[in-house]
Lab assay of single mutants.
Amino acid sequence: KKSYVLIKVKNPKTKETHTIVVPEENLEEVLKALASQPNVKVVDIERFP
């Protein structure tokens, strides 16, 4: 059974918020990819039960 993680990201320029759902096993690479985006800020990470 896969567990999923909900990542909320915000664009500081446009103030838009997006929610991305990723499998927990991919969380680290997704966070690394997001960290390299200049106008993306991770605001929240939630685990799915």
Rank of each mutant, 00 (worst) to 15 (best):
V22A: 03
K13N: 10
V43P: 01
V30N: 01
L34Q: 00
E28S: 06
K10A: 12
L6F: 10
L6G: 13
L6H: 15
N11W: 10
E24L: 10
V22Q: 01
T19H: 09
P12W: 15
T17W: 12
E29G: 06
N26K: 12
I45K: 01
A33W: 14
E24Y: 10
N39H: 11
P38Q: 09
V9Y: 11
N11Y: 12
F48M: 11
P49T: 07
K1A: 10
E25D: 08
A35N: 08
N39W: 06
I7Y: 00
T14Q: 03
K2P: 15
K13M: 13
E29L: 10
P23Y: 12
V40A: 07
T19A: 06
K32T: 07
T14K: 03
K10D: 04
T19K: 05
T19D: 04
E28V: 08
D44A: 14
V40N: 04
V43A: 03
D44W: 15
L27M: 05
E46G: 08
K15F: 09
V30I: 08
Y4W: 10
Y4M: 11
K13T: 10
E16K: 14
E25K: 05
L6Q: 12
D44N: 15
P49K: 04
K8V: 14
K32V: 06
V30H: 02
K8C: 07
V21E: 04
V42E: 02
L34D: 00
K1Y: 05
Y4S: 03
A33Q: 10
K8G: 03
T14P: 00
K13L: 14
R47E: 05
K1F: 06
V42P: 01
Q37P: 02
S3P: 06
A33N: 08
E16G: 07
V5E: 01
T17M: 11
E16W: 08
V40Q: 05
N39P: 02
K1N: 10
K2V: 10
S36V: 08
V5D: 01
A33F: 14
Y4A: 03
L31Q: 01
T17L: 10
V30M: 10
L34A: 01
E46Q: 13
I45Q: 02
K1V: 07
K13P: 02
L27Y: 03
Y4H: 08
Q37F: 12
K10C: 14
K15M: 13
Q37T: 09
E46I: 14
V43E: 04
K13Q: 11
V5Q: 01
F48I: 13
K32F: 06
L6A: 14
S3Y: 14
E24T: 08
A33I: 13
A33E: 08
K8F: 12
I20S: 01
K41W: 05
R47D: 04
V40L: 14
A35Q: 11
N11S: 04
A35D: 05
T19V: 13
S3N: 12
V43L: 07
V43W: 02
P38H: 10
K41G: 03
P49L: 07
K1P: 09
